[in-house]
Write a protein that binds this DNA or RNA. Sequence first.
DNA 1: CCGGTCCAGAAAAACGTTTCAAATTTGACC
DNA 2: GGTCAAATTTGAAACGTTTTTCTGGACCGG
Lengths: 338, 338
Amino acid sequence: MSDVGIRDVAARAGVSPGTVSNVLNRPEKVSPATRAKVEAAVRELGFVRHGSASTLRAGHSKTIGLSVIDIGNPFFTDVTAGVEEVASDLGYAVILSNSAGSRAKEERNLLVLAEQRVRGVLITPSDEDLDRLDRLRARGIAVVLVDHPAHCPDQCSVAVNDIGGGMTAVRHLTDTGAKSIVYVTGPLTIRQCLDRRAGAERAYGRPLPVIEMAAMTPRAGQQAAEKLLSEGDLPDAVFCANDLLALGLMRGLTHAGVRVPGDVAVIGYDDIDFAAASAVSLTSIRQPTHQLGRVATELLLDECDNPATHAHQQIMFQPELVVRESTQGQAGRASFDR
Amino acid sequence: MSDVGIRDVAARAGVSPGTVSNVLNRPEKVSPATRAKVEAAVRELGFVRHGSASTLRAGHSKTIGLSVIDIGNPFFTDVTAGVEEVASDLGYAVILSNSAGSRAKEERNLLVLAEQRVRGVLITPSDEDLDRLDRLRARGIAVVLVDHPAHCPDQCSVAVNDIGGGMTAVRHLTDTGAKSIVYVTGPLTIRQCLDRRAGAERAYGRPLPVIEMAAMTPRAGQQAAEKLLSEGDLPDAVFCANDLLALGLMRGLTHAGVRVPGDVAVIGYDDIDFAAASAVSLTSIRQPTHQLGRVATELLLDECDNPATHAHQQIMFQPELVVRESTQGQAGRASFDR
DNA sequence: CCGGTCCAGAAAAACGTTTCAAATTTGACC
DNA sequence: GGTCAAATTTGAAACGTTTTTCTGGACCGG
C-alpha cells in the first residue's frame, strides 16, 4: 500500500519520471499542460514523495535539528514555537532533541542528527566547549547558536544581552529604593547566570551576595527563600537569574510571612507567561524569546538555501524591563500590563 | 568532507561493504577480529551512517513524529519530554510538529511526516475527525493517540479518565463545603473540556453554571474572573478545566479583593509545575503527563519493532487529586507538598 | 583421507528519487 | 515550406546503503 512511486505517477500521466520530478521540484520548467496532467495523477494516486530517496540523491534534506537544554522550561518552549513556525512555513521539518543539561546526551543527539543528514542545527550548547559544533560544520551541516553569542565571526548566532539585562534589573531595583540586593542564581558554570551577575554587579558598583542553586526551577527558588531567611537580615530586594527561581522564591517568602514587594522586592528574568499570571505579578526582564527562535531559524535556512550570498551574523537582542507588582513597594497596583 | 561512505570504511578495513553493513546492523554475525578491524576504521575515518540511504534501502526509518496541539502548554511539554526520553533511548529521533489548534496546519505537518517516512506518529488530534489518521495507517505508519481514547480497538491510545477527573474535582469541592460551583472552561468543542464537565455534573447531581472562554490560557482565566465578578453572587468554588485558566482566575479574583480560598475555592486541572509554585498554591487534578508520553512511545515503538506480537492497547490512566491551599478554606496552610 | 556441513565474508542487485546530457518538439521568421 | 534557436521532455546513470545469493575454506565424522 502506498508504494506509489514517481514512476507510477509518470505512467499514469503519460510522461517520463524525470518530468514528474521536475513538476515536483521546478514546476516553472515544465509546460502548464503537462504540469496539470502530472498534478492530477499525483492526486489520483495519492502519491507522497519518498523523502529519503530524495535526500539521498539530492544530497541534502528538508529537515533541521533543534537541540535545547531543557524542554520543560517555558523559555525554550517559546523559542521552539518560533522555530517551528518558520521552519514549517518553509517546508522544513524540525527534529527536536533535548539535552537535559547532559553533555553526553547532547552528543548522542547530535550524532542522530548527523545521521539524519539534517540541513542544519540550531543549538543552545550545554557548555562552553564548542568543538563538536565545528565538527558538525566540517560535515557541511550549518550551525546557528541560540541564546549564545558566537565566539568567531564565521558563524551565525542569536543571543540576548545578558550583561545589559543584569544591569537593567539592578538599576531598576536601586531606582525603586533598594539598598541591599541579593543575587539568586543557578549554577555559575552557566554563561547566562554569569553574565547576568556581571551586569548586575556593574550596576550595583560592588560584588553582590550570591545564593547559588543547583537547578533553576520553582522548587529551587523556594529552597533559596529558606536559605535567605536563615541567613538573618533580609535584603531590600532579590534579583533572580530566571523567573522559575523568582516564582519559587516569592512563594517561599510569602509563606514565611514576608511580604512581596512590601518587605522584599523581587525581580526575575525571562518574562515567561506565568510571571504576569502569578498572584503577585512578577517584574522581569523580557527576552524576545519567540523572536529568538524565529530569527535563528531564518538565519539557518538562509545559510542553507543561499550559501553563496549568506553573510554570517551575530545578532544580539536587547532585553527589556517589564515592571509589575513585585517591585512596586509603595506605588501599589498602579498599572499592570497583560 | 565527511563524504566517508561505507565503502571507504570497507577499503580501509580490508573487507567488503557488506561486511561493514553487518558490523553496523548485526554485529553478532561477524567474527570478533573483523569486527574490531571495521570498528577501528569507522573511528579513524569518522564515518557516520547515511540515514537516508539506510532508510531507502531498508524500507523504514528510525524516526517518529509527534504532533501536539500547543507546544506552549506545560501539559504538552511534559508529554513531549517523556516521548523524547524513550525515543532517544531506543535510538529514535523525534520530529516535532505543533498544530497550534489548526486543522490545516496539522494536516500539512502530517504530510511532511509521511514524506519523511517516519516509522510512526504520536498525535493528540486537534479535532474529532480521525479519517486522516486511518489514511496514515493505510500507508503503513503506526499511529498512537495521545490524551485521546481510540474509537476502535485496532489502534493504540493513551488517555486519562477525564470524566473521573471531573467527578473527583467536584467531589473534593463539595467535601470541603462548597454548595455552589461554577465551571470555567475552554471551548466546549474540545473533548477534554466536555468530559470534565460531564464528570463534574455527575458528581454535582445537576447542571453546572458554565463560563466558556475561547482559549485556555492565564489571560483567559483572568477574563473569566471579571465575568464571574460581574455576574453578581460569587459561587463557593470554581472548577477550572485546566491550571492555566485557574491561575489566571485566581489572580483576577485576588486583585478584585476576593480571597482565595477564603471567599472562593479554586481547583484546576493538569497539575502543572506552576500550580504548586503560585503564591496561593493550586489544588489540582494531576495527570501522569510524563508517563503518558513515555507509555505512548513505548506502545508505538513496540508496534513498529514487533508487529507480529504487538497487541493494540487502549490505556486509560486515572487522574489523582492533589490538595493544596486554594481549596483549604479554613484548614489553613497545614501541609503543602512540593 | 574424503565428502558433507557450516560459517565468514564477497559480490551484486536493489531501494525511489534527482540530475544532466541528449533528443525531441515548438515557434518564429524568412 | 524550411531553418534555426529555444523550450520541453526523455532516459539512464547515479546517490549510499541493505539484503540476498554465492563462494571458498575450515571443520567434523567416518
